[in-house]
Design a protein around this nucleic acid. Structure first.
Lengths: 258, 258
DNA sequence: CAAAGGCTTTGACCGAAATCAAGGCATTGG
DNA sequence: CCAATGCCTTGATTTCGGTCAAAGCCTTTG
């Protein structure tokens, strides 16, 4: 059975939420059209009443590339779902050296529960649209709904796995392997249907050379040189520095094994 | 009010568990004497009945340094609390290059919920004692007790923060800064009362040079050279390659800032 | 005690990536 | 149309950390 709710909410205009009440126990993610976030977003964890309540307190934003969402040591007063675009999470040393410690793609949840101060910066890498909720509301909901915490635990565990994968890349891979791994990761995030055998696809790079360098622990010159090498070796093709077509980078990216 | 339970359990002999029923809501960690784990361990999340049940299915192990606890791509059938010693979590590339992606100290919880296969290796860095629980029991308990999931979420978020801190170290710090940061991190974990101003303390290094190298993305030679430099600069003193006395490494370790 | 093996240090040399320095190629705006 | 700006590429040179090699220092063991 599928119930349909109508709610007039700020920022969304009149929205239609289709809530399938039977899917909860089956473990199938609930579709939340109010924020278009699925799978990993928070909405899937809530029942119909909560969804209506959430829609009423949520608000949609669009953010220009380069705008800071959460500053280091700033108080965080809201949580958000990323609806589109890419958000980069950065940390920096006092002398300005910077490291990107995470990228958040479409249905990811943005925010660090149980900590008032953020230890990292969040910045829009591309144009980003967000669906934000007041901190207090999410935290109350978390206390009331164990399913929401369960969701968050799963996403956090995934982010931990990703962070640890990147530690291997940062600590043990060569510049060439780093760039190849990066392109592969972006490809997998932008085109989830990517064939794991051929690994051939085509996409717009969401990051500048400077961002890629900050992500891989390299300089922009090294990133540029490695990209030209991949181009001359025939492993990638590029138009206008942003659009990339990758073919078989898997071997170069360095497989992890026993 | 404090109730005391007596239970005869395998591996523990007769144990005494003191459970303060009033602390649950107050957020104070419950002391679980059966495994001596506090603060971040799972025991704090359980009520009296659960604790007795847990003690009955738990078993204590002691593991020699170098022994593998969880192999890559192996099925994980138990979760554990680390009671003493240090466990290193590693990932490696197919050609043998290795990276330590995490260290687990005394009250940490060991295990990756919601995934049958482990993507990482866990190995005893020192002699380690563990308190293990069957996978199925912990997972059932997690379903029944939201407080346990809450605990796990908090630990996972902490581990994520730590992983991201190390990404900065791996990607952006020099060899000297890496070694200094490492010593400081070990000092803080072994001696939590470490004065943040002076940062002076003295401890046994739980890792070999090879481990430190794998942790910092360096070679053993570079680690050794940096340690001698710290020694000649008067920032550390050492006896027999293991016992270290550190003084003021904070400046060298590189502060993170806005 | 002597031999063996593991771990660490030290030295000489090399190379991958950083640094320094131009120059190219778009887009923007006077 | 022509500067100006921002982003990217390319080249020359330097340097930090890696590689190769040898030797020191413990602990273990026969």
């Amino acid at each position: 059975m599928a119930d349909t709710y109508l709610a007039d909410t700020q920022g969304h205009g009149t929205i239609v939420m289709t809530v399938r009440q039977d899917v909860h126990s089956a473990g199938i993610p609930v579709l939340c059209q109010s924020c278009e976030a699925r799978h990993r977003g928070v909405c899937g964890a809530l029942d119909a009443d909560q969804l209506v309540g959430l829609a009423k307190i949520s608000s949609k934003h669009t953010i220009e590339p380069g705008v800071e969402l959460i500053g280091d040591a700033e108080t965080v007063d809201s949580y958000s779902n990323v609806l589109s675009g890419v958000v980069k999470l950065t940390k920096s040393l006092s002398d300005g050296r910077q490291q990107i410690v995470g990228l958040q793609f479409a249905p990811d949840f943005l925010g660090r529960p149980f900590k008032v101060e953020s230890a990292i910066n969040a910045e829009a890498a591309t144009a980003v649209s967000l669906c934000s909720f007041p901190r207090a509301s999410i935290e109350r909901m978390m206390r009331e709904s164990p399913e929401l915490e369960h969701r968050l635990l799963k996403q956090t565990l995934n982010e931990l796995d990703e962070a640890r994968d990147w530690m291997v890349t940062l600590g043990r891979k060569t510049a060439a392997e780093k760039v190849a791994s990066f392109l592969l990761m972006i490809a997998r995030n932008i085109d989830p249907t990517l064939d794991p055998a051929t690994n051939a696809t085509s996409f717009e790079l969401p990051l500048t050379r400077a961002d890629i360098a900050d992500f891989l622990g390299l300089t922009i010159e090294t990133v540029s040189r490695q990209l030209t090498r991949l181009r001359t070796d025939g492993l990638i093709r590029t138009e206008n520095n942003r659009h990339v077509t990758v073919t078989s980078l898997t071997r170069l990216a360095g497989r992890s094994g026993a």
